[in-house]
Nucleic acid binder design. Structure first.
Lengths: 210, 210
DNA sequence: CCCGGGATCAACCCTTTGGTTGATGGCGCC
DNA sequence: GGCGCCATCAACCAAAGGGTTGATCCCGGG
């Protein structure tokens, strides 16, 4: 047989780390060689030890966000494969993680077998999307009506952060007219007629960060 | 010595259940006698078995929310003590949980010792608030400026769900004038000047549900 | 007992947003 | 090359939201 898969767990919740360790350590061919409570720790640990697969949370309480760490880890050749493991299946997060070089995107409510399968797939060089995540992406492709363009999401995200149209226009170096146009398009796509309703709908659909 | 403390874990995430089991099962005097993936299961299990302490999540993917289950479990005499264990320290959630009869409110990013201490305290008939949670409540008492009244929170929550002033007034059987008054007060307390900014600020401060 | 804060409403005015129409330029795709 | 989508902007009107003042009622605490 080949050498065991060397795993690292990066999550700020001790409970989650313990759970992953418990679920994965008993699997044959897997070996949990380290844990990190912050993204910075995770990077440092990968620099010291050979790691095959990192299970990476996206939201850390403080410090570097998980996406950045993912990008940093996957950027170097010979670096570990990164599986993102998070609570939310926000479309924005999924796309950002994949762009950052993640080999897969898993949800914390996934059954253990799914998790193990994903780790093995990642170690073997493949990709792994949790069924729920894959479903969301397929929905996105299948339902072109609820596809927001990059710019539209950008504007909507700022609305969600409480900015007015004028503030958004300044932040993005646009005219207010353009901001309004984007928002009107968003309203049409989401089937709503106000900025607050658009934020609520987009949140519910996972189109923007929470 | 006395009999071991009989524990039940109620959380929809297998990873979290495994983590709690791993962290708690090794503790002397604690015995994890069951797990539930839904609030309904938790209630059923408590009806069949004697349970001293339930570790209860607040958000279940589907079905009955954790607060309701907490209320149902603590309502009967001789029922178990319930420790709420959740990811968010939203003020609204904390107050709702305590009102529902929870003996404590813990965060999933708490260190294991804190968790164990809380379980023992609850079993002994005491209460346990995670330091972070206690801090939030103390802040609330100390800073009366950011205290929203019950009605103000209610209105703001509906704003966050995307309703217009008119829809809110109908939902709560009020005049639009009253809704506006509540919101103006909220803006003043939060130091903002629009409904979307108020929602963002309240979310950041954990005043409303996410 | 009175004061303060919460909750309720009205009338007013001004600003922001929403809705429409229309126009331009770029980019990818058939 | 043309068609469609994205991104950008303008002008305009109608509607909703925001700000102010002021008023009533109820309740609980000093």
């Amino acid at each position: 047989m080949s050498a065991p898969i060397r795993l690292m767990l990066a999550d700020d919740h001790p409970v989650v780390r313990a759970g992953l360790r418990a679920l994965l350590a008993t699997e044959p061919g897997l070996e949990v060689i380290g844990e990190a409570a912050t993204a910075e720790e995770a990077i440092a640990l990968c620099a010291r030890e050979r790691v095959d697969v990192v299970l990476m949370d996206l939201q850390f309480g403080a410090g570097m966000p998980g996406v950045e760490a993912t990008a940093a880890l996957t950027a170097r050749p010979g670096g570990p494969r990164v599986l993102v493991l998070t609570t939310y299946d926000s479309e924005a997060d999924i796309l950002a993680a994949v762009e950052a070089g993640a080999s897969g995107y898993l949800l914390k409510d996934a059954p253990p077998e799914e998790l193990v399968a994903a780790v093995r797939a990642a170690a073997a060089g493949g990709s792994a999307l949790a069924p729920a995540v894959a479903h969301r992406l397929i929905d996105r492709v299948r339902a072109p009506g609820i596809t927001l363009s990059r710019r539209e999401i950008e504007v909507l995200q700022l609305v969600a952060e409480g900015l007015s149209n004028q503030q958004i226009s300044r932040r993005l170096s646009l005219s207010q007219a353009t901001v309004k146009t984007h928002l009107v398009h968003v309203y049409g796509k989401l089937g709503v007629d106000s900025r607050t309703a658009a934020v609520a709908a987009a949140r519910a659909r996972g189109l923007i960060r929470r």
